[in-house]
Structures are given as structure tokens and as C-alpha cells.
Write a protein that binds this DNA or RNA. Sequence first.
DNA 1: GCGCGTACAAAGACATTCTAGGTACGACTG
DNA 2: CAGTCGTACCTAGAATGTCTTTGTACGCGC
Lengths: 111, 111
Amino acid sequence: MTSPRGTLLQGTLDLLVLKTLTWGPRHGYAIARWLEDTTGDALQIEEGSLYPALYRMERRGWIEAEWGTSEIGQRIKVYSLTRTGRAQLKAESAQWRHFTSAVAKVMESRA
Amino acid sequence: MTSPRGTLLQGTLDLLVLKTLTWGPRHGYAIARWLEDTTGDALQIEEGSLYPALYRMERRGWIEAEWGTSEIGQRIKVYSLTRTGRAQLKAESAQWRHFTSAVAKVMESRA
DNA sequence: GCGCGTACAAAGACATTCTAGGTACGACTG
DNA sequence: CAGTCGTACCTAGAATGTCTTTGTACGCGC
């Protein structure tokens, strides 16, 4: 009961995707692979979370999409970071650091 | 738009509350105050999040409640950690460390 | 022909947090 | 003594985001 499933913390996916795109444009599937590789499979990026997230971020102007073709001839949707997205990444990074440091204070507290 | 409101990351509240109760039984309001004090107001614990969370955790057997009276004569509901709760805390701490280290790998990545 | 890996998408379930409102009571203040 | 503030608890409903499941499409290898 109460499955300890690999749940991503709400809001973190955006941060991760934005950060990934600082290394250049990538399509959705590649973003997921890169994140899983980089974290040594510690994070599992579910497609059912990723694609809605990408759509959301595009709608908000943080990323831009363009259709293209992969090396093996597959049709792919390539995303790249916008100026707004860069600002958003900066803001979310700061928030993340702020938040984790607050949690750390609690977890490391002694009496 | 897209208010950067002090949103707690989903799932973290449980961890914070469980950790707080390792310092001994406390009532809801006091838990919130302690967390805010400890983090220097970096975290704001909303009552509308806290009380449902306490109820949830009680239902799951992680914490136990008992009615009591505060020093100033107010009726208070005092929560304490159960054995199950201690195990849960241990599990969630490990998950938290695991997760944040994965995010850190991404954030600190270079090309 | 079938399965597998790549690649995208959408619907609905599910969990959790937040907003906003409410109750109650004691203490202090004008 | 009415009003406000701080303590203390509670609930309903909105909002958000992730996950599960299912579907499409296509190329490759067996």
C-alpha cells in the first residue's frame, strides 16, 4: 500500500527540462533520455508527464517548437529555449536552491 | 501571471512534519511555527495544507493524536510519531536525498 | 508477420497544495 | 465593552501537475 512510486516532485520537471535545453535544442524523447542518462536512471521521465509539460511550457513562451527529422528519418519536434525560458530557468533554479536549503535546515536540525 | 507563490513541493510536507515530530509530540499550530522558525520563514506552512496532511498521516498510522490543553488553556490536538511513522520518515528521507542528488547532477552538469 | 525501439499525443485517474471561509476563545486596547 | 489580535482547529472547492493507459506511426531485424 501507498506505493513509493517514482514520483517526481511537482514543479521540478519544468526546471529539469529547461536546464536540459541550455545544452542546445532537443526533441522530447531525447530530453527524457538525456535526463535519465545524466542522473544514472535515478529519475524516470514518464512520457505522460513530459509531453504535457512541454506543451505547457511552450504555451507559456518558455520554449519553442519546430518540426524536424531525426538521423534515422523519424519526424521529431525540436524544442529550444526562449529568452523568457532562460529567465524562468534562472528564477526556478533560485527557488529550488532556496527551497532545498530550507528543507536541509529542518532535516539537519538537532533538538 | 504564473504567480511564483510559496508553493511547497508535493510530498515534502509529510517529510517535514514527520521530522518535526522526532523532537517530541507537538500540536498542529506548533508544528507550523517550529518549521517556519527553523527555516527562517523560508517555508510557509499553510493551515489549509497542514491540517489535511495531519489527518492523512494519522489515517495512515504514521502519527497519533491526543487532545490536550495548552499552557494558556487552549484546547489542542497533540500529535506524536508512531513506529510506522518513524519507518516512513526514514524512507522519505532516503527518497529525498536520492531525488535531490539526482536534480543536483542535472543542475551541475556541464555540456 | 511480429516484436522492438523511436517518437509523439491525449484522456482520465489521482494526489496534494492552496485559497478562502468558518468556529472558538482569551487578552489587550481604546 | 466593542474591536482586534493571536492562538488553535477545521472544511470545501479550486488549481495544478504527475502518472497510467492507450493509441498512432514507422523502420529494422528475425
